[in-house]
Simulated assay, not measured.
Amino acid sequence: MSVSESLQSRRLPDPAALLRLVKPVTWFPPVWAYLCGTVSSGAAPDGAWTLVLVGMVLAGPVVCGMSQAANDWCDRHVDAINEPDRPIPSGRVPGRWGLWVALAMSGLALALGATLGPWGFGATVVGVAAAWAYSAEPVRLKRSGVWGPGLVGLSYETLPWFTGAAVLSAGRPAAEVIVIAVLYGIGAHGIMTLNDFKALEGDRQTGVASLPVTLGPARAARVACVVMLVPQIAVVALLVGWGALWAPAAIAALIVAQLWAMRVMLRDPKARAPWYNGTGVLFYVSGMMIAAVALRGIGAGG
C-alpha cells in the first residue's frame, strides 16, 4: 500500500498531526496579552494564581488552539493548494476529525471561561464566536483583507488583555487599560496582514481578498507597516500625557528597532514577511508589556 493510499484509508488522526492542527507556535500572542492584562490591572496576583494560570491555558492552548483547528477545517480547500502537507489536506487528520476537534475545544473553552467569573466568561464567548466568524461560512470574515486581520488582531491582543485585567481586578478594567489594549489590537492588524503573505496564491485562486491579493505584496506590506506603527505612536503619546517617564522612551526605542526591521522586509516583502514576523514582532510585543507595567505604575489599573 502506498503512502497516499494509507493516508486516504486512515480512520483515526495521527497524534502528531493533531498537535500541528492546533499550532502551539500561535499560542504565545494571546497568552502574552493575557499576562499584559493581569499586570496592567494593578491588582496583586497573591491568592489569584489559579485564575492567572487558567486564563493562560484558556487564551493559548484552548481558545487559540480551537481557532486554529476551526480555521484549518474551514480552509481545507485553500490549504490543499497552498500547503497540501497540512494535517487535514494530507489526510493525517481524516474525515471530519478537524471539525470535531474544533467543536470539542469550543465547548472546553466555554467551560473553562465559566470558572473566571462573568467578565472572563463573557470574554470567552466573544473569543469563541470571533474564531468561528473569522473562518466559517456564511460570515467568513477571512475573505476581507480589512475585517479579517482586524478581527484576529483584536482577538489575539485586545480581548485577552481585557480578560486578564478584568479577571484579576474582578470588574471592568480602567478606561486607560482598555484604550491601550485596543490600540495594540489595532496594530496587530498589520502583523496579521504580513501573515497572509504565505497564503497569497491559494487566497487569489479561492477568492479571499486579503490585502496582499488586492493591493499586491509591496503596497500591502507598506500598509501593514503604517498600521503597526501608528497605534504604537499613540501609546507613547498617551503614556506621556498620563505622566509615565521611562516607558514612553523604551517603547519609542522599540519603534525605531521596528523601523529598521521594516526597511529590511520592504526590500522583498513576499520573501521577508515571515522573517519580520519572527523579528520585528518581538519588538512590538515587548512594547506591550512595557506599556502594561507603566499602566500599573501610574495607577491606571487601580
Rank of each mutant, 00 (worst) to 15 (best):
A199I: 00
V208K: 02
P217I: 06
R219L: 15
A209Q: 14
C225M: 14
V226P: 11
G241R: 00
G207C: 09
G216E: 10
L200S: 06
T214H: 09
C225H: 11
A199P: 00
P217V: 00
C225I: 11
V240P: 04
A220F: 05
E201R: 14
G207F: 07
A237T: 00
A234Q: 03
L229C: 11
A224G: 05
L239W: 04
I233R: 04
E201Y: 01
A237D: 11
D203E: 01
A218M: 03
L229R: 14
Q232R: 13
L229W: 12
K198P: 03
P217A: 14
E201D: 14
A209N: 08
C225F: 11
L200P: 03
L238Q: 09
L238M: 14
G202D: 01
G241W: 10
G241L: 12
L229P: 03
R222I: 03
V235R: 00
V213H: 07
T214M: 15
L239Y: 02
A218F: 02
V208W: 03
A237R: 05
V235H: 01
A234Y: 07
A221Q: 01
C225E: 12
A221E: 01
L200K: 02
V235G: 13
L229E: 15
A218E: 15
L238K: 13
C225P: 00
A234R: 07
A234I: 12
Q205S: 12
L238T: 09
G207L: 00
V223F: 09
A224R: 11
D203W: 05
A220T: 03
S210D: 09
L200R: 11
A224I: 08
R219S: 13
C225G: 13
T206A: 03
T206D: 07
V230G: 00
A237W: 10
L200V: 09
V208H: 03
L200N: 04
M228P: 02
G241Y: 09
G207I: 08
G216F: 13
A234T: 13
P231T: 09
T206S: 12
A220G: 13
A209Y: 08
V226E: 06
V227H: 08
C225W: 14
P212S: 01
A224L: 00
R222M: 05
T206R: 01
V230D: 07
G207W: 02
A224F: 08
Q205F: 12
A209D: 15
A199Q: 06
G216W: 12
T206M: 10
P231S: 08
V236Y: 01
L239H: 04
D203V: 13
G241M: 10
S210T: 15
C225S: 15
V240R: 09
K198F: 05
A199C: 09
S210I: 10
T214W: 08
T214F: 06
M228C: 15
A218T: 15
L215T: 04
E201S: 06
P231Y: 13
V226L: 15
R222E: 10
A234G: 04
V227Q: 12
S210K: 11
G202R: 01
L215P: 05
A237K: 02
K198T: 02
L239E: 07
L200A: 11
I233N: 06
P217F: 12
L211W: 12
L215D: 08
L211C: 05
L200W: 11
A224P: 13
V230H: 00
D203G: 04
V226Y: 13
T206Y: 09
A234L: 15
Q232K: 14
A218W: 05
R219G: 00
V240G: 04
C225L: 07
P231M: 14
V236I: 14
G241A: 13
L211R: 07
D203S: 10
